[in-house]
Amino acid sequence: MCGTSLVGQQDAIAPLKAAAERPEAMTHAWLVTGPPGSGRSVAARAFAAALQCLDQGCGTCRACTTALSGTHADVTVLATEKVVIGIDEVRDLVATAQTSPSEGRWRVLIVEDADRMAERTTNLLLKSIEEPPARTVWVLCAPSANDVLVTIRSRSRHVGLRVPDPEDVARLLVDRDGIEPGLARECAYAAQSHIGVARRLARDPDARARREQILALATEIRGVGDAVLAAADLVAVAEEDAKAATEERDVAERNEPVAHARSR
């Protein structure tokens, strides 16, 4: 199963690999849990790629590259930056689940933040999970199994990811992104093993500078007045960091169609 960002998760993802390789090990609904930075969405997309790939997830064919990016015709990804996933979004997803795969082997539906669904919305999803059409697979992602309704947990196979070791994250940054080992290690520990944050710190000097600015705020507080000013500065830096992260993600998404067109 492809997905080089799944650092230190070999044991956890073994059931996913087995399901992609052997039909008898397949389950129609999966619940992938783990703390931020553990690679929940990466695992879900890698699993989708392995299900569509004729070679159990080679990572390079068109089926793999489009599944990993979320642009495969039979892989639907529901991700949100909102506090709550809307019921209309899930209703559309359930409708998609009823259709047969158009070009791949499976219809795969990934919900990256299943914990953000209200109970009413989850109940709508539950019926589809209870009576799944043939060749349809649900992959729900959440921080922990307790973050979703027990009815969802009881009907899904659980895959629990853990926080990767920072040394493993540092090696990933060196091998995948060509980061200098010392900087990679520093960023991995600074990000507390969050792969996405570590990568952004390693590749963006401005991100590292903002982090140093935030850490320096604590040393400047001498009283209530300093605390108020520091709080305002913290908000400003946090907003700047969030804006930079959003812009980086937007650039990556705009570049994805070009990369896929070249791989065909």
Rank of each mutant, 00 (worst) to 15 (best):
A97K: 07
S102W: 08
V7L: 08
A79S: 12
D165A: 12
E21H: 03
D168K: 05
A216S: 07
D175T: 08
G223W: 10
L234D: 09
R262H: 04
A18T: 09
C2M: 11
A20R: 10
H158P: 02
N146M: 08
Q192D: 14
R22T: 12
T27F: 14
R200P: 06
R249L: 14
P133A: 03
S69I: 02
S156D: 10
G86A: 06
G3Y: 04
E253K: 13
A19L: 01
V228K: 13
V75D: 09
R203C: 13
A67N: 06
L31E: 13
E24Y: 03
I85T: 15
Q192S: 15
G182I: 03
A209Q: 13
G86R: 14
A43W: 01
L31Q: 04
A46P: 00
R176I: 01
R62D: 11
T246V: 13
A14Q: 13
P133C: 04
A230Q: 04
A49Q: 05
K127G: 00
D74R: 01
I152C: 11
P15G: 10
V94Y: 08
A259M: 12
Q98A: 15
P101T: 09
A184C: 05
E256G: 09
M26S: 12
D11Y: 01
A232D: 10
D250H: 12
A43L: 01
E24S: 12
M117K: 12
L149R: 10
N123G: 00
A190C: 03
S102H: 09
R200S: 01
W106Q: 11
T60E: 15
L140C: 05
A97F: 02
E220L: 03
L68N: 05
I179K: 09
T33L: 03
I152A: 03
P181Q: 09
D175A: 11
C61L: 14
R249T: 12
E212W: 02
L217H: 10
C53P: 12
R40F: 06
R171S: 05
E130A: 13
F47W: 04
A114M: 09
G225M: 02
L31H: 05
H72E: 06
D177G: 03
T71A: 14
A261R: 13
S69E: 12
A95C: 03
P166Q: 04
T96P: 00
R22G: 00
A44T: 02
I214S: 06
E239H: 11
V111S: 02
H28F: 04
V84T: 08
V148M: 08
C61A: 06
L51F: 10
S100R: 13
T96G: 06
A97G: 15
G59S: 03
V159E: 04
A14Y: 04
P164Y: 00
E186R: 14
R211D: 08
V94L: 02
V251E: 08
A242E: 06
A134E: 14
A232Q: 11
L229W: 03
A73M: 12
A18V: 07
A19V: 00
H260C: 06
E248S: 14
G3V: 13
L161Y: 00
E186G: 04
